[in-house]
Computed example of a mutant assay.
Amino acid sequence: MKRFSFLPALIMITLFITSCGSSPLNRKYSDDKFMMDVKAIKESKKLSDEDMRLLAGYIIRAKISGEKLETMTYAEMLKKAQDAVAGQKALADKTAKEEAEKRTRLGAAVNVALYNIGYVKGDFQDHIQYDLAFENKSGKDIKAVKGSLLITDLFDKKIKELDIVFDNGVKASETFKNSYSTDYNQFMDEDKELRAKSIKEVKFVFTPEKVLFNDGTSLE
């Protein structure tokens, strides 16, 4: 009788292996059976909506690029798609951290503030004007500053981003004010939004890229 005591366990193992092997995710891709496989994967409820979108996106991109999918299972394709997303997120997090560290490091030398936005009517071309203040906190005379100014609404939605080069110089412990302008385009939503907003209705972030000092040294 003892030899039959393993029978229930053997049955369970067999059922487990069979169920794993029969999962639609373990099927290899086939153009002819693709729609049927997708239906089976959805009905299995083993994937979240996000994973279904990742899998579909991977297949679409592979088809566009001419990649052969017939040797891969849906599970393998999903893993590649998830790895790609993880890699993109890691790169984005690394870049954001580096930018934040750079902003802090260079921000210790120069502080840049947007204190006014205005609409300027011109004879031939209207402009949006941006008034900036550059505060030198470095203890050395600054020759030039290069960076970017991101302007958002109060909910952090991007309105406009400007490349800023300030080469008027500012002495140590002093503040220098300077104005910049961009052509106003009545057909661009960002310009219409800026024209309608006051400085109290926007937020800004200045990201310095490089600071040049009069003594020939620099920060970047």
Rank of each mutant, 00 (worst) to 15 (best):
D126F: 04
T71Q: 15
N111C: 04
Y119K: 06
E174K: 12
A96M: 13
I117T: 14
S5E: 10
K102W: 04
L69P: 04
I41T: 09
Q82A: 07
L106F: 02
D163Q: 12
Y184N: 11
G169Q: 09
R103V: 10
K63R: 14
N116Q: 15
L91Y: 12
T18Q: 10
F6W: 09
M1I: 06
A144H: 02
A100D: 13
V205R: 04
D191G: 04
Y29L: 10
Y58H: 02
S179P: 02
Y29T: 03
S22I: 06
L10F: 06
L25W: 02
D51I: 06
R105Q: 09
V110L: 08
E50R: 13
K171V: 05
G21V: 10
I64D: 10
Q125F: 08
S48D: 08
N185S: 12
K146F: 09
M72S: 10
K192T: 11
Q125G: 05
D31A: 15
E174Q: 13
E67C: 09
A172V: 05
F166V: 02
K97W: 07
K33I: 08
N26T: 03
D183T: 15
T175A: 09
L150P: 00
I159N: 04
F34G: 01
L47W: 05
F134V: 06
Y119I: 11
A9P: 01
K68A: 15
C20D: 14
A56I: 14
V112H: 00
D141I: 08
K97R: 06
K197P: 02
T182A: 10
F16R: 00
N26R: 14
F124K: 11
K143A: 13
K102L: 12
G118E: 11
A133V: 14
D141R: 07
D141E: 10
R3S: 11
T73W: 01
S198E: 10
A96S: 11
F16Q: 05
E209P: 00
L15K: 07
E190H: 05
E193Q: 15
C20E: 05
F124L: 15
Q129K: 14
G122C: 01
L54R: 07
D189L: 11
E174Y: 15
D131C: 02
E50S: 14
K146E: 13
E98F: 07
D31H: 06
A196V: 04
K80A: 07
T152N: 10
T73Y: 04
P208Y: 06
L114Y: 00
D167M: 08
A81H: 01
G147H: 00
L25M: 07
Y115V: 11
S138I: 11
S22W: 03
K137D: 12
L78P: 01
I11V: 09
K63A: 07
K28G: 03
A86V: 08
E99K: 15
G87W: 06
L149Y: 00
R53P: 00
K137W: 05
L219Y: 07
L194I: 03
F166Y: 08
R53H: 12
A100N: 07
L150R: 03
S218N: 12
K79P: 00
G169M: 05
V205F: 03
